[in-house]
Amino acid sequence: MINLLRAELFKLSRNKVFWTLTLIVTVVFALLHYLITVGWWKMSTPFTDAGLEIFSSLALATTPFYFMLYLSTLAGFFVANDFTIGVVKNIVMSGNYRRHIFAAKLIILSLGSVFLAVVCPLLIIIGGKLLFGFGSITDPSSLGYLARSMGLFLLHLLALTALLMLIALLAEDSGKTIIISVVIAVLSSIAEVLRPLPGVLETIYQYTIFHHLIDSFRFGMPIVDGVRSLSVGLGSMVILACCGSLVFKRKEMK
Rank of each mutant, 00 (worst) to 15 (best):
M1Y: 05
I2R: 08
N3I: 04
R6P: 01
A7G: 00
K11S: 08
L12I: 02
N15C: 03
K16T: 14
K16E: 08
W19G: 06
V28S: 07
F29I: 01
F29D: 05
A30I: 02
L32N: 09
L32F: 02
L32Q: 13
L32P: 00
D49M: 07
A50V: 11
G51T: 10
E53L: 10
I54S: 08
S56F: 00
S56L: 01
L58H: 03
L58T: 03
L58W: 01
T62I: 14
T63V: 12
T63C: 05
Y66N: 13
F67P: 07
M68Q: 10
M68W: 12
L71Y: 08
L71I: 12
L74Q: 07
A75M: 08
V79N: 08
D82L: 05
G86D: 14
V87I: 14
G95F: 10
R98S: 13
H100N: 14
H100G: 13
F102W: 14
A104D: 08
L109C: 09
S110C: 12
L111F: 14
L111T: 09
V114D: 09
V118N: 10
L122E: 11
I124G: 09
I124N: 11
I126E: 08
G127R: 08
L131A: 15
L131P: 09
L131K: 12
F132T: 12
F132P: 11
G133L: 07
G135R: 12
T138S: 15
D139K: 14
S142Q: 15
Y145H: 10
L146C: 13
A147H: 06
A147G: 03
R148T: 14
R148M: 13
L154G: 10
H156G: 09
H156S: 09
H156T: 11
L160G: 15
A162W: 03
L164F: 05
L166R: 03
L166S: 06
I167P: 02
E172S: 04
E172N: 02
D173A: 02
D173E: 06
I179C: 00
S181R: 03
V182T: 04
V182G: 01
S189D: 02
I190R: 01
E192G: 01
V193H: 02
V193A: 13
L194D: 06
R195Q: 14
R195W: 00
P196L: 04
L197S: 03
P198S: 05
P198F: 03
G199N: 04
V200Q: 03
V200W: 05
T203P: 02
Y205K: 08
T208Q: 09
F210H: 09
H212I: 06
D215Y: 14
F219N: 07
G220V: 11
M221E: 15
P222Y: 06
P222K: 05
P222L: 06
G226Y: 04
V227N: 01
R228Q: 12
R228V: 12
R228F: 03
G233M: 02
G233T: 04
M237T: 07
M237Y: 02
G244V: 01
G244N: 00
L246T: 00
